[in-house]
């Protein structure tokens, strides 16, 4: 394959998976609580709080509406500060995570909204405090929807990681761009794209299957 071995592609695959998985985890570590706060502080909900909701909603909306490629560039100084460099796999995790947080937050918020108000009512009537309402009632009830959302977010982050490859991030996206596109190695381009498609497909199907299985 035009001077590039399978182990090279394999390394790219591993890098992509590393970036995407770690970024997804980090994005959820911050995005999940953020989504919960967004949902519960919304008008008419458990901890209604206009100020908190509006501030968070504005931040999330603005950061979500910035195209990811712009986000990548804007975040370069920030990434340097944290990782020490702005190129490579580790460096890509920072913008990926930052870009995914608002998306995750909105997705989580939407999932929690699906849980009927009646559940909250029943929980409060049982004498649950707000923390218990969230952790024992709302979140467990939203699990299937949260899993489904996670599968979708995983695919979105994978797409972003490929984009990040164009400006120095590692992984399959970088290989496709550097070797496939710039150096006209069509076979490399095809193989990397095919692998990306397979990851998307497997990730999507697996997520939906788990979500379906967990839904009663």
């Amino acid at each position: 394959m035009a001077g590039l071995g399978w182990d090279f592609i394999w390394k790219g695959f591993l890098q992509t998976m590393e970036m995407v998985i770690i970024s997804t985890v980090f994005a959820y570590l911050i995005g999940l609580p953020l989504g919960v706060i967004l949902s519960v502080t919304k008008k008419g909900n458990l901890c209604e709080n206009r100020l908190v909701y509006n501030i968070l909603a504005v931040i999330v909306n603005i950061s979500r509406s910035i195209p990811f490629l712009i986000f990548l560039v804007v975040l370069i100084p920030f990434t340097r500060l944290i990782v020490g460099t702005s190129i490579g796999t580790e460096a890509t995790i920072v913008p990926l995570t930052m870009g995914a947080i608002p998306i995750v937050a909105r997705m989580v918020e939407a999932s929690l909204e699906e849980v009927g108000h009646g559940i909250v009512e029943a929980a409060l009537a049982m004498g649950a405090d707000k923390w218990q309402v969230i952790t024992q009632f709302i979140l467990p009830e939203a699990v299937p929807s949260l899993i489904q959302g996670a599968a979708i977010n995983f695919v979105t982050i994978l797409g972003y990681s490929a984009m990040a490859g164009f400006i120095g991030g590692g992984g399959l996206g970088n290989i496709a761009y550097q070797h496939g596109y710039i150096r006209y190695k069509t076979d490399v381009l095809f193989i990397t794209v095919a692998i990306l498609v397979v990851i998307v497909w497997v990730g999507q199907e697996l997520g939906l299957k788990i979500a379906k299985k967990s839904r009663h």
Binding site: G116, G118, I119, E121, A122, A125, M126, F137, P140, E141, V143, P144, S214, R215, H216
Partner: peptide, 14 residues
């Protein structure tokens, strides 16, 4: 004071 509702309000995932 236990409460029951028209819509049952059970946890469907449990």
């Amino acid at each position: 004071a236990g409460m029951i509702f028209q819509g049952f309000n059970l946890l469907n995932q449990k």
